[in-house]
Design a protein around this nucleic acid. Structure first.
Lengths: 214, 214
DNA sequence: CAGGATCCAGACGTGGATCCGT
DNA sequence: ACGGATCCACGTCTGGATCCTG
C-alpha cells in the first residue's frame, strides 16, 4: 500500500475501515490473527499501518511523513473511554533543547486517532474499528504538555531518577520502556557520574486522551 | 564453552586447535560448513570464537574481556604470508580523544592471532588451523600506529572525506565498512554541515601483519 | 594487489503497544 | 487504576571477515 498523497486520501482510507471487525481487516490484508495476543501486543497497530499505507519503521518521523500526521490506535473500554495510557516516544539523552523541537511535540502536534474496541468481553476477532479522528493539539493542551515535558526533561537532564516516577506530570508521564526490567542503559546522574538506569518512554495519561473523544 | 580464566588456559586451548582442519573443528563443535562461503565470510572466525570460549557479541571490548586479549584470524596465502588486510574496528564520530583510549589501541594492544590456511587451491574443509601467536604491540609499532591513527582521526573529525581514502596511513588505513555502498550515515563535514557518508572502518595493512609472523 | 564493495550473525534500540499486581 | 513490567517486529549497527575489478 502506497502512502496517501493528501490528508483527504488518508481520511478516506481511514473512513473505509470504520465499522470493520479485526477479523474483516486481517482477512482483507491476508494476515492471520496471532494465536497468542499476549505476546504480539502491537499487532493491530501494525495492521492499521499496513492498511493505511503508513511508512513503517522506527524513525523519529511521523507515520505519514509527507503529511506530518502521526497514526495512533485509541483502545476503548466497555464504556467507550480510553482504556489506558498511550505510548508517545522513547526518552533518551541528550534531550531536545526546545519543546517545539522535541520528539514529543513532533509526535503529538497532529494525530490520526483510530478508536478500537478493547473490551475484554468482546472476542478479539469480533472487535471493531471506529471512525477516525484527525486531531490537532489545542493551545490550552499544548501549554500543559509543554510544562510537563519541560519538568520531566529537566529531571532527566539533571539525572534526578529518584523523583522521576510515573507520578510526575499532568498529561504526560514517564514510565519504563524496555523488554524487561533487567534491561539497563548507561546514563549520567546529578553528580555527573555514570549510572545504569531503566530506559524510559513518554506516555499520555488516559484523562488526556479522553479529550480526544470530545 | 566458558571463557578461559587465565592466559595459560587460553593458550592451551588454542594450541590444541593447531593442526586441525576446518572440517575437524566444525565436526567437533557440531557445526556444518556453510554451503555458500561467499555469503558467510566470517564463519570460521566465529567458529574459533566458539572453540576458544570468546564472549561473542558486538561490544567495544576485547574478545577475552577478563584477560584483555583480542582474537583474530590471520589468513595466509600459499606462501604463508598474510593474504590481505585485517579489519580492526569501525570508525565513528565522536572519535576518542587520545590514542590510548581509542578503540583501535584497545583492540591492538594484545592479540591472539590464529593463522589459518587461505590458499584458494586448498578445498575449504581441508584447510588447517595454525599454531597460535600471542602478540603484543611493540614500542616501535605503536609509534607508527599512533601517528596513523591521529592523522586518520583528524581527517575524520575535520570531515575531510575527500582526502580520507584507503591510501592514507602507513600501517593503518580506513576503508568502507558497510553492507554495501548505498548505506549512508549522517556526519559532519569541515564546514560543520550535515553530510551523508559511507561508514568506514580501520584496517591493518598486510605489510604490518607480516611482522606478526616474525 | 589493494582500494572499494559486499555478506552474515547477533546485539540493540525504537515503535507498535498491552499486561498485571497492589 | 495505574505504575511498573513486559512482548514482537524490524531497522540499524558492530564484529566476524572476504570478494572483486581495474
Amino acid at each position: 500500500m502506497l502512502p496517501p498523497k493528501t490528508e483527504q486520501e488518508l481520511l478516506q482510507r481511514a473512513n473505509e475501515l470504520a465499522g470493520k471487525t479485526f477479523f474483516n481487516l486481517s482477512k482483507e490484508l491476508h494476515k492471520k490473527i496471532p494465536d497468542n495476543l499476549l505476546t504480539e501486543k502491537g499487532w493491530l497497530g501494525q495492521l492499521l499501518e499496513l492498511a493505511l499505507g503508513a511508512s513503517a519503521g522506527s524513525k523519529p518521523e511521523p507515520d505519514f511523513k509527507e503529511l506530518g500526521i502521526e497514526l495512533k490506535t485509541l483502545p476503548l473500554n466497555a464504556q467507550h473511554q480510553p482504556k489506558g495510557s498511550t505510548f508517545v516516544c522513547t526518552a533518551s539523552l541528550p534531550c531536545a533543547t526546545e519543546w517545539q523541537q522535541s520528539n514529543v511535540y513532533q509526535k503529538l502536534k497532529c494525530i490520526l486517532w483510530i478508536p478500537i474496541e478493547a473490551d475484554p468481553n468482546i472476542p478479539f476477532a469480533e472487535r471493531r474499528i471506529g471512525a477516525p479522528i484527525l486531531w490537532r493539539l489545542t493551545t490550552v493542551q499544548e501549554k500543559i504538555l509543554k510544562q510537563d515535558w519541560e519538568e520531566l526533561t529537566e529531571m532527566l537532564t539533571l539525572g534526578d531518577y529518584q523523583n522521576l516516577t510515573a507520578r510526575v506530570g499532568t498529561y504526560l508521564q514517564m514510565r519504563p520502556k524496555a523488554a524487561n526490567s533487567k534491561v539497563l542503559r548507561e546514563s549520567i546522574n546529578r553528580e555527573s557520574e555514570k549510572q545504569l538506569i531503566v530506559p524510559r518512554g513518554f506516555y499520555l495519561r488516559p484523562h488526556f486522551t479522553k479529550q480526544v473523544l470530545r
